[in-house]
């Protein structure tokens, strides 16, 4: 266990060193992403310029959802996605064999192989947006809500990780299905909006099939002090189920892995 942890920290250190080698890129990429995120706020601003409330959400609370989206996306792009792109590439070239040969858990190793540390800048942007939203609202969140909001941010990221690793495992069967990760990224864009603004089939899909509600809406509701205990528990439970499922899919996929190099 300690060995695995040491290896994870080592991979992290290598990636920070790599990022530090390109300092100008670090700042440039971070600022560029911040600008594009700010531009992406436009539809929300236009919408709430005309309407006070949409599907029970006013502007400040919708902005809180948006800040959760930015935070989860920053973590996704910074911690999870680079590793998966790396994994798909290794599967295609056959270099994944070397990972399997090592006496540590392969899922842990591939999940932590690459990071892009400049996304901490986006994370700071997300925090600033949340603070601004609560400023608009006029009252700060209660301490217990903050704690629950942070806890659910963690489960939201975990849920997202589970979905992504399950899809990456699919590339064992269908090599070069790395686009699946892009498809998920596109669907994840839905998480910018509170799930309640979608109706009927949409909401069922985004709550249960592709659980974007778990990733941003429920955590935001927790921070706003609106989430009831049952939904909070269901969010945690749903995340655990997703993580378990992802692990099963990963194990099954590994068993049918036929190396590309042999």
């Amino acid at each position: 266990m300690t060995r695995a942890l040491r290896l994870v920290l080592l991979q992290l250190r290598v990636n920070i060193a790599r990022a530090a080698a390109y300092r100008a890129d670090f700042i440039f990429n971070g600022v560029m992403t911040l600008v594009s995120m700010a531009l992406a706020l436009l539809p929300l601003l236009i919408l709430f310029d005309q309407r006070k409330v949409v599907a029970g959400w006013d502007k400040p609370s919708a902005l809180v959802v948006m800040s959760y989206f930015m935070a989860v996306e920053a973590i996704l792009e910074g911690l999870i996605n680079p590793s998966l792109v790396d994994l798909v590439e290794r599967i295609r070239t056959g270099a994944f064999d070397y990972v399997l040969l090592k006496p540590v858990d392969a899922q842990l190793m591939v999940s932590t192989s690459r990071q892009e540390p400049w996304h901490v800048i986006d994370l700071a942007g997300a925090l600033a947006l949340a603070i601004y939203a609560f400023g608009l609202r006029g009252e700060p969140p209660a301490l217990v809500d903050v704690l629950l909001g942070i806890a659910l941010l963690v489960t939201g990221v975990a849920a997202m990780y589970a979905v992504f690793i399950a899809c990456a495992a699919a590339s064992f069967w269908v090599v070069r299905l790395d686009n699946l990760v892009y498809l998920l990224g596109a669907l994840f864009d839905t998480a910018r909006w509170p799930v309640q603004v979608f109706r009927g089939v949409w909401r069922i899909v985004f709550t249960f099939v592709i659980p974007v509600a778990i990733m941003t809406t429920y955590p935001a509701m927790a921070l706003l002090g609106r989430l009831d205990g049952r939904t909070a528990l269901a969010t945690v439970g749903g995340t655990v189920v997703l993580l378990g499922l992802a692990r099963v899919i990963w194990r099954t996929a590994i068993r049918s892995y036929t190396s590309a190099s042999s």
């Binding site: 299905l177 686009n179 699946l180 892009y182 498809l183 990224g185 596109a186 864009d189």
Partner: peptide, 8 residues
């Protein structure tokens, strides 16, 4: 999959 990516 690429085509499906245009869900926006």
């Amino acid at each position: 999959v690429w085509i499906l990516t245009t869900t926006m």
